[in-house]
Amino acid sequence: MNTIAIVNYGMGNFHSVARALRAAAPDADILIASRPEEVERASRVVFPGQGAMRDCMATLRASGLRDAVLHAARNKPLLGVCVGEQMLFSHSEEGDTPGLGIFPGNVVRFAGPAFSRPGADGAPQLKIPHMGWNRVRQTQAHPLWQGIPDQAFFYFVHSYYVAPSLSSLIVGQSDYGVSFTCAVAQANIFAVQFHPEKSGDTGLRLYRNFVGWNP
């Protein structure tokens, strides 16, 4: 049976992810995994996260699941979601926090004129966190985009985003004051800044594609 482990280290909306996966893949065995051996036995892994990067990394280490995630990233299909995507990178500006270092690059905060106080011209100030529906521009073809139109809407809640050192990692971008990376992929890993579990039928399609993906 196709067993999908959702890594439960205490910092993510695991039950919402599980509900979405069960809807997308009713024949799969969906497990909210809080022990390393559960992650290791699974055929594929979803690595979610929400909250502050520093807290997520500290809780991941304390849970004993850090090495299981690193092992899964080397050996089986892995889908990172929100802070789960950010944690795959080398470093985050949020709390000056080292990440897992699977991908080279930094996690940076929205900044620039679009986020400054309105000036005399009354230019609008964009709010942080970025919260709501945004179009995703598919910058590279990938099996997880199958059946999902380019420029489809996904749901976001975040103040930080990944800035990969390698442009080859980038498979999706969006715009919020600046153009930012919202999806990355390499080999057996696909990771997104948005929340597929909050993105309606389009998000379910992405989860369904992940369940059938054999990199």
Score class of each variant (00 low, 15 high):
T139I: 04
A120I: 10
N106L: 12
V184E: 05
P149T: 12
E93S: 13
F156I: 02
G177I: 03
E93L: 11
M87R: 02
A152I: 12
R61A: 02
Y176R: 01
D175S: 15
L169E: 02
E93V: 08
A191R: 11
Q125Y: 04
I128Y: 03
D67P: 03
I170P: 02
A123C: 01
G84E: 07
K76N: 07
P129I: 04
A191D: 04
G122Q: 08
F153A: 08
M131E: 01
I148V: 06
A183M: 01
S116Q: 15
A58F: 00
Y161C: 09
S92A: 09
A163M: 11
L169F: 05
R54T: 12
P118R: 06
G51V: 06
V81I: 15
K127N: 14
A114W: 13
M87V: 07
C82D: 01
L79H: 03
I102N: 00
V162Q: 11
S174R: 08
V162C: 14
G122T: 04
R109H: 15
S168R: 12
P124W: 14
F110C: 08
M87S: 02
V136R: 14
R135F: 02
P104M: 05
H71P: 02
T97E: 12
S90C: 01
Y160V: 00
G147R: 09
L166T: 05
L88T: 03
V108E: 15
F190G: 08
A62F: 12
V184A: 07
S174F: 08
R117S: 06
G51H: 13
L70I: 12
P118Q: 11
V184R: 09
F180K: 13
G122E: 09
N134G: 08
A52F: 10
G99M: 06
V136L: 14
A73G: 03
D96H: 15
A73T: 03
E94R: 07
V178W: 03
A141E: 13
L169T: 02
T139F: 02
G101H: 09
F190I: 00
F103A: 10
T97Y: 05
L78I: 08
G172P: 10
M53Y: 15
A123H: 06
P98S: 11
P164S: 14
R54D: 13
G122I: 04
S63H: 05
A111C: 10
H158S: 07
V83A: 00
F156S: 02
H71A: 13
A187N: 11
P113L: 13
A185T: 01
R137Y: 00
V178P: 09
P113N: 12
A120M: 13
T181R: 12
C56G: 10
L60N: 03
P149C: 03
R117C: 01
A62L: 10
P104G: 12
P164K: 06
A62G: 11
R54S: 15
R74M: 06
A111H: 06
C182D: 15
L60M: 04
L126A: 00
A111V: 09
S168L: 01
H142E: 06
W133V: 08
T59K: 07
P164A: 14
G132N: 08
E94Q: 12
A58G: 06
D67C: 04
Q173M: 09
N106F: 07
